[in-house]
């Protein structure tokens, strides 16, 4: 019996030490997706700075200091936080990242190309913040969730980022890979991640769906009255589909149901 108590105490103690954040860890997150991951794995105590775009969970903006914009964060505010680790998203942050790296900060860029890379990033963020167990639980939950989402059959999609000028999210983006999983094939095959495209091209490509992330249905219809056949999908909350974070599974589910509803309406 004593041995049992001793053993369980050992396990608990070792477990605690394994799940404790590394001493003196001060993290600044420059990406809303990463902030969501940090909260989801319970590592928020090590988080000292976020961007003004980190709106989820709602308490993040209340509890943590904002270092400003996603692309142009305030270098002075970051310096004031004295971070030991800065986590960035990469896309659209090139200048800030190079300034921070040149200033000698430890900057890690997490720019997942697809969902499996996102899982690896969650595990890695878990490792960096001493929350490996919670991180692998989160990944397992997300995998299970994704398996339960039904798939659309052989449909094509155009992912709109900005209505005018018309900008697409190409097949090189995370969002595109997420759509692919639920059976929506992206028609925008380009070298760039976010190419500006011609409306004529879009009319000719005849996608089954247009996933709107930069405008409402009314706005898009007003700006592009000649694009008629494609069904518009506008998620209620854009953040859950564009942020590579723990809520992406909800986003995928929503895209699926929007597509299914649009099909039924036909």
């Amino acid at each position: 019996m004593r041995i049992l108590i001793f053993l369980s105490a050992f396990v608990i103690a070792s477990g605690c030490s394994r799940h404790k954040a590394p001493e003196g860890l001060r993290v600044v997150s420059l990406s809303p997706g990463i902030t969501e991951i940090i909260y989801a794995i319970g590592a928020q105590d090590a988080l000292y700075g976020i961007t003004s775009h980190c709106t989820w969970p709602p308490e993040a903006l209340r509890e943590k200091e904002s270092v400003g914009d996603f692309s142009f964060p305030s270098m002075e505010k970051i310096a004031g936080i004295r971070p030991s680790l800065i986590l960035a998203a990469g896309d659209g942050q090139g200048k800030a990242i190079s300034h921070l790296t040149n200033a000698g900060y430890n900057v890690r860029v997490f720019h997942p190309a697809d969902i499996s890379e996102l899982f690896r990033h969650i595990i890695e963020i878990g490792r960096l913040t001493g929350k490996e167990k919670k991180a692998s639980e989160l990944v397992a939950d997300m995998k299970k969730d994704i398996r339960s989402i039904p798939k659309v059959k052989n449909k094509s999609v155009f992912i709109e980022v900005c209505p005018q000028p018309l900008i697409a999210a190409s097949d090189k983006t995370f969002l595109s890979s997420v759509c692919e999983i639920i059976g929506l094939k992206n028609i925008a095959v380009f070298k760039d991640s976010y190419p500006g495209v011609n409306a004529e091209w879009l009319i000719r490509q005849k996608p089954d769906f247009i996933l709107l992330t930069g405008s409402s249905e009314e706005e898009f219809r007003a700006l592009h009255p000649y694009i008629k056949n494609a069904k518009l999908l506008r998620p209620s909350d854009i953040d859950i589909i564009v942020r590579p974070g723990p809520r992406i599974t909800r986003g995928m589910r929503e895209i699926y149901y929007l597509a299914e509803d649009a099909e039924k309406k036909q």
Binding site: C162, P163, Q164, P165, L166, G214, L223
Partner: peptide, 19 residues
């Protein structure tokens, strides 16, 4: 922020208006 890119593009000249 939402209209930032559209207006920057507009400042460079764009004939894609359809309204």
């Amino acid at each position: 922020k939402k209209e930032f890119f559209s207006l920057i593009y507009f400042m460079m000249g764009d004939l894609g208006e359809t309204r």
